[in-house]
């Protein structure tokens, strides 16, 4: 006779009691793994707090700004500066090649490898190759100018392969986008603050201290399909 939902959990609970709680549930296992995850401390208090201590290694984190002037660029510059001060190399996959050199301090550019990409598909293909290289602990994928439909030709398996490669090398990838991109992302934050004209003359620290992050619900594969169609 098939077990119903309640009887399943009762049976599991009784089995656990018999085995002295040696069996962990999937969520317990994931929680434990989450606690063990090494995190790349970003130097941005708001971002660190929203991510539980920093960017999780072996993961792809999405930072979403649903329009211009949300502060994604300033966060990117801050991540680059932090990486430079720690002697780490960063690869920037720039979809649309909108990189503006005057926005970054010269000394931070020394550790940056810029890769100009024509499309989201090309950038993900490049990321797939790049994440096999142990020289780069941080990858920035700049898709701020991409439409949601631009990501539709990227296969889900490719994202999971990239994740697997990131895990193997304990590297971190951050995707800057205008909307949710992939269900492979476990950590997704939306930038809800907005920059004003006066911010053009503010110190970077001041702008960053005002940045506000809001966690975004994880995208299921069905939702990802909807996003692609949409």
């Amino acid at each position: 006779m098939p077990l119903t939902g309640n009887s399943k959990s009762d049976a599991l609970e009784s089995l656990r009691k018999q085995l002295g709680r040696q069996i962990k549930s999937g969520s317990e296992f994931l929680q434990e793994r989450e606690q063990k995850t090494i995190r790349l401390v970003t130097g941005l208090d708001g971002l660190n707090a929203a991510l539980g201590g920093g960017l999780p290694s072996g993961q792809l984190t999405e930072i979403i700004g649903r329009g211009p002037s949300r502060g994604g660029g300033v966060i990117m510059a801050a991540l680059l500066a932090r990486a430079r001060s720690e002697g780490r190399y960063v690869m920037l996959l720039d979809i649309g090649a909108g990189f503006s050199i005057g926005s970054f301090p010269e000394r931070d550019l020394e550790s940056l490898l810029w890769v100009g990409c024509d499309s989201a598909t090309q950038a993900v293909e490049a990321l797939d190759v790049a994440t096999r290289d142990e020289n780069f602990p941080l990858f920035l994928l700049d898709g701020r100018d991409c439409e949601p439909s631009d990501w539709k030709s990227v296969r889900t398996q490719q994202w999971y392969r990239i994740l697997n490669q990131l895990r193997q090398r304990e590297a971190v990838a951050v995707l800057f986008a205008r909307s949710e991109v992939t269900s492979a992302t476990k950590h997704r934050l939306e930038l809800v603050s907005r920059l004003a004209l006066d911010d053009l003359h503010q110190e970077r620290e001041t702008i960053l201290s005002r940045a506000r992050f809001q966690p975004v619900q994880r995208v299921t594969e069905d939702r990802e399909e909807q996003l692609r169609v949409g």
Partner: peptide, 12 residues
């Protein structure tokens, strides 16, 4: 190298 950079970044 280089002076400090202030303000938000430009995306071209």
């Amino acid at each position: 190298s280089g002076p400090p950079v202030t303000g938000s970044t430009l995306r071209r």
